[in-house]
Amino acid sequence: MRVTCPYCGERDRREFTIQGDDTSLRRPGRDAGAEAWHAHVHLRDNPAGRLREMWYHDPCGAWIVVERDTVTHAVHGSVPAREAAR
């Protein structure tokens, strides 16, 4: 699997660490309530299809959001998490 780091270019999957879907981009406020926090920490859409996923490029330290298909493994693009998070 090849993923493009927006800073370094296309790289093999082994250069990355992966940390689940992009739920973390929508972190609730501190007092959003137990339900919201339970959903945020534990529940996942887990689609069979397109998914936005958090990848960390170990050599350069960039977190990026990779859009990928969980059935075909096709990679549809990647953006710096810093941009996606704003």
Binding site: G20, L51, E53, T70, H73
Partner: peptide, 9 residues
């Protein structure tokens, strides 16, 4: 990585 394909890399 999340996957429903029964294969890896």
């Amino acid at each position: 990585y999340a996957s429903y394909a029964q294969r890896g890399n």
